[in-house]
Design a protein around this nucleic acid. Structure first.
Lengths: 241, 241
DNA sequence: ACATGTGAAAAAATTCACAGCA
DNA sequence: TGCTGTGAATTTTTTCACATGT
């Protein structure tokens, strides 16, 4: 829901400059790079299309997708415009093609094995969660500092000493990791992970991580989600619902 | 990450109307109701201000907050304009006042005990997660259908037969719940929860729930977050970083 | 000097509306 | 008729710029 970003602020902007003279004729693909909101919806489209396909559908239209989710049909078409598929007028999109294109878009044609750093409650729950493996994110290794979890296995996943982090991820070729350590050691742990070559961190520790530009962070914080929920509940109550 | 919403669209806007002559009168509070993005940032401000206070700071400025997070200082000021506090020119905001105002805004002055429905891997992890209790969301009860978990306790939390859901939440006065059941029974379980009077659902099941307008849903899906991360990683790699 | 609060400008995201195709 | 793809309009969100206050 947020990421490392530069902080440049170097005066970009200016320019009423209408940009290049010729915007080109019927540009095939949508030039502008997709925003985070688009990427977020893309994942959800993927699930819906997969589900539709499981239900036996061979094609799906933007209208159908918009009914399955909370977006307008024109939004769906705009979003899918970032993909390499084309829809068929009067028909819609071929489910299989669409799934494939979204996977390509998101970078999901390959498996992304992950490391779990911190094997307490949450780390263990992640290791036991089938959903990750099923969607192409098998957990390849756990790491911890406590002797009583090191060398154990959870759901068949081995827990290594965090001291071996660099060598294990190099050997297993891991690029992304879930950070599940207590907040007070979040930053320093992240630093070590980055030094070891990790490229992406799913951060469950309730701290804002500072990482180099080359590393991506996605934060997951349950208590924030809970607070969003509470706000929505209270607001509805206030509206008399 | 999404919610039931109205569809009103009652035409506000219009008005190139340069508005009244005298803008003065310094309207105290910001009229328009806060959008979801604002609410999301509010939770994060809360954490930062709490942290600053723990670090001994008595006041905090929009500039300081903007450095701690990924927002501009004017954004911070606009956001905090939704609150009932006023900042002090030249100084900033009183941390304690600000924390209080954000809590009022978000509805966090009271505790929000929650029910956990589905006590498998994830449900158990939630019950064992201290962070929720610490932020005012103690887990008051678990529910499941399987005899081998019913009547057990996890981290001191009792697991009831889901058949008793309505009576237990009425007795314990629970309004919100975390839904941690397998996707195939997600909707039907939600239906029963709604019928029992639940007002908000933190949905961990990877399905889109259909609920009445009066009920709020916030979805949490780890695999979607993972996909966002992968996209970001691939994109950075493509940019040569 | 440092900050807030806020109109007005700019940018981004979303929706509209319709041409064009099967 | 049913649907895509896309400019243009609209709405929402963010940033700018500055008057005001301490």
């Amino acid at each position: 829901m947020q990421q490392q970003l530069e902080s440049v602020h170097a005066g970009r902007s200016r320019s009423a400059e209408p940009s290049p003279f010729f915007r080109l004729g019927g540009s095939r693909l949508m030039s502008e790079s997709p925003s985070k909101t688009v990427v977020g919806r893309m994942s959800r489209y993927l699930r819906q299309v997969e589900r539709a396909m499981d239900d036996g559908k061979l094609t799906i239209s933007s209208r159908m997708l918009s009914h399955l989710m909370e977006v307008s049909d024109s939004q769906v078409r705009k979003d899918l415009g970032h993909l390499t598929v084309v829809g068929h007028a009067g028909i819609g999109f071929q489910c299989s093609e669409l799934i494939d294109a979204i996977k390509v878009f998101l970078g999901l044609k390959a498996q992304w094995p992950i490391a779990v750093v911190g094997c307490g409650n949450l780390g263990q729950a992640l290791m036991g969660y089938r959903g990750l493996r099923e969607r192409g994110f098998p957990i390849a290794a756990g790491f911890d500092l406590l002797p009583d979890v090191i060398n154990k296995t959870y759901a068949g996943i081995e827990v290594f000493n965090f001291a071996q982090f660099a060598s294990v991820i190099a050997q297993k070729n891991l690029e992304i990791a879930a950070l599940c350590v207590p907040p007070n050691v979040g930053q320093e742990t992240a630093d070590q992970m980055v030094a070891a070559g990790i490229r992406g961190i799913l951060n469950f520790a309730p701290v804002i991580l500072h990482v180099p530009q080359s590393v991506c962070v996605v934060n997951v914080d349950l208590t924030i989600e809970m607070e969003q929920l509470v706000f929505a509940v209270v607001q509805k109550r206030d509206c008399g619902l």
